[in-house]
């Protein structure tokens, strides 16, 4: 396909879509006022059909397939799930996922919060925030490549210079360069750093808005009582923005649970760095084990639910106050 043909296809798809939608609206517009039900159907049916065929049916099918073998031919009961919880490689995947989901939200939120407090109402606030927020606009693949150049390792020999910034820093400090992405178990931490780098901006933005919403009489009263610096942060700022903190923490943890781009791009899940979302891709699309992949997807689903439930409850509480 050449470029012209591709754009042609794109134009055709959009035109086709606009045509169909236009026809629906035209027909509905002509209908008599009485035909209310038909009008409603014309408005919601496209969306509901797509969701039914493209999300609900596949989800049910995936749950069904998770009880079958790799080709979906033979019923195997809970064997796929048993494997996830007993196979030593899978246990490492579960351990890594736990580390990701716990560390990423905590670190990103902490850094985002500290930074939001530090730059709050300073003269350079807008620029300072844009700097931290910018990584959110970058794809995780792009972020991974950026950090690939930070972690790059060259053997420690004469005439060979380090190309990665972090290893160069180690060399400057008189230490040996390291394989940051290969040496287990620390490599998982270096991958998590990338996700923290991306998510801190999100935390900072939401928390900064929450901080600005703290009534000034509270902060002023605290100041009169002699509260400053770290103690102000600990006793006034943090308790005042608790609901926002919970939202940020849970949002980032759900995102982290499902994210696989960084692991996929930088290690492909090798060197004991795989997580559930990456293992799903490896099993389902590289190794063709539909049963195990489906079981992993179901695991993701099941793990998301309690976090969302907690989040919704917190939001309710926040609304009731």
């Amino acid at each position: 396909m050449d470029t012209f043909e591709k754009f042609g296809q794109m134009a055709l798809a959009v035109a086709l879509f606009v045509g169909v939608m236009g026809a629906i609206l035209l027909l509905v517009g002509r209908a008599r006022r009485r035909a209310d039900l038909w009008q409603s159907l014309a408005f919601v049916l496209p969306a509901l059909l797509l969701l039914g065929v493209g999300l609900i049916y596949p989800a049910v099918r995936t749950i069904y397939q998770s009880f079958f073998d790799r080709t979906s031919d033979e019923f195997v009961g809970v064997d796929n799930f048993t494997e996830i919880f007993t196979n030593s490689d899978m246990l490492i995947v579960l351990r890594n996922t736990a580390i990701w989901v716990i560390l990423t939200p905590l670190l990103a939120t902490f850094i985002g919060l500290v930074y939001a407090v530090l730059v709050d109402r300073s003269r350079v606030e807008a620029a300072a925030k844009a700097v931290i927020f910018m990584p959110m606009a970058i794809s995780l693949v792009g972020a991974s490549i950026i950090w690939r150049y930070v972690y790059e390792y060259r053997p420690d020999q004469q005439n060979i210079e380090q190309v990665g910034l972090l290893n160069q820093v180690l060399v400057w400090l008189g230490m040996e360069p390291r394989h940051f992405l290969v040496d287990t178990p620390w490599n998982t931490l270096f991958l998590i750093v990338i996700m923290v780098w991306v998510q801190a901006g999100f935390a900072m933005t939401v928390l900064s808005a929450a901080i600005k919403a703290i009534p000034s009489d509270i902060t002023e009263a605290a100041q009169l009582d002699g509260l400053t610096g770290v103690r102000m942060f600990r006793y006034i700022t943090v308790p005042s923005i608790r609901p926002a903190l919970v939202v940020v923490l849970t949002t980032i943890s759900i995102g982290t649970l499902k994210v696989f781009d960084i692991v996929r791009t930088l290690t492909g899940g090798n060197f004991d760095t795989s997580v559930i979302a990456n293992e799903f891709y490896t099993q389902g699309f590289s190794l063709g084990d539909t049963g195990l992949a489906s079981a992993l997807a179901v695991m993701l689903f099941v793990l998301v639910i309690p976090i969302v439930a907690y989040n919704v409850r917190q939001l309710r509480k926040a609304e009731l106050r």
């Binding site: 530090l118 730059v119 109402r121 300073s122 003269r123 606030e125 807008a126 925030k129 844009a130 933005t205 939401v206 900064s208 808005a209 929450a210 600005k212 919403a213 609901p243 926002a244 939202v247 849970t250 949002t251 980032i252 759900i254 995102g255 982290t256 649970l257 499902k258 994210v259 998301v304 969302v308 989040n311 939001l315 926040a318 609304e319």
Partner: peptide, 30 residues
């Protein structure tokens, strides 16, 4: 990315998240 719907209250807060919201307030040094 992931899942949490901002409450109306939070959405109001978010609506003010633009770099220019703090004009008019006294800007102090860090």
């Amino acid at each position: 990315m992931t899942a949490a719907i901002p409450t109306p209250a939070l959405q109001d807060e978010l609506a003010t998240v633009t770099p220019a919201t703090i004009t008019g307030r006294t800007r102090k040094r860090l």
